[in-house]
Design a protein around this nucleic acid. Structure first.
Lengths: 146, 146
DNA sequence: TTGATAATGATAATTATTATCAATAAAGGC
DNA sequence: GCCTTTATTGATAATAATTATCATTATCAA
């Protein structure tokens, strides 16, 4: 992310805060700058650690508060990585794609793996990456709940 | 998940433990039964809470230990839900699919959204669910790292 | 410049997870 | 079926992450 793009992103974010009636404060700017300029996804703790190298760094509580606000405004997204999260489900045969009802929590397996496999091959060719793993999870409302 | 399927799953899991030299203990069976019979993904804490209704429930440490073991054996998978995890990334325009290098952590956006959109329509028709949200994340090794 | 108040920092409280270690129970050999 | 070995457990301490509290501070509209 080059400097111009970064500046643009920060400007957009500041505008979003203003539009929603949030104050543009020093701690918020510091967190936003770290998030915008990172090459990799960062945890709140990562962000706090990096902020400590700045002059008068924000408190840890402000880091969390700023991230929560940015999430509400849709300025950031959460990235889910292997080894990260916590909910458990039996591993049935092979790789599966899950459809979770956001109302009742029920899950079901969806098929159509061939289409995804084809999609992944395309991606590998386009990017030169070797894709070892993928997650596809769908969230929606089941017939019982809608 | 009906009773026969559940029993079969528990049998398979017990066999897996034996084959890997793990003992089949009461606490492990209790955790496995809860996981196998649940209609929804459960957190370790959920599982612990449910276990408290059983006779001589396992300690919380055994719940974590059992889940860790089951994960190593591939008996369970982790489910990642909105609001759950912790790594942060700027939300760029619209919905995006992310390709993360498991070696250096770098991310890139992949395209091909049309294919995924078509796939999702199929799913909606097949299942009757209204799919509101989806996550597709790819993990692999980038050219620099391989 | 000032006043109202949103936001902050410091820190306490809460929650989740992992580590420790003496006591216990699973499983193979008899 | 009973021993013996030792993997596993439970209780709990330690660690880590997140959230809540509240007096003080800084933003920003007037």
């Amino acid at each position: 992310m080059n400097s111009t793009v970064l500046d643009q992103m920060l400007e957009n974010w500041k505008t979003a805060l203003h539009q929603q009636g949030y104050r543009v404060t020093q701690p918020r700017l510091q967190v936003m700058e770290i998030v915008a300029s990172s090459e990799t996804p960062l945890t709140p703790q990562d962000i706090y650690q990096r902020s400590l190298e700045m002059d008068s760094p924000p408190g840890i509580a402000s880091v969390y508060r700023t991230l929560e606000m940015m999430d509400e405004l849709g300025l950031i997204q959460q990235i889910h990585q292997p080894g990260g999260c916590h909910a458990i489900w039996p591993a049935l045969d092979g790789h599966q794609h899950l459809l979770i009802c956001t109302s009742c929590g029920k899950m079901r397996i969806v098929d159509g793996n061939e289409e995804i496999t084809a999609y992944l091959s395309n991606i590998e060719q386009q990017t030169g990456y070797q894709v070892d793993e993928h997650w596809l999870q769908l969230f929606g409302v089941c017939q019982d709940c809608s």
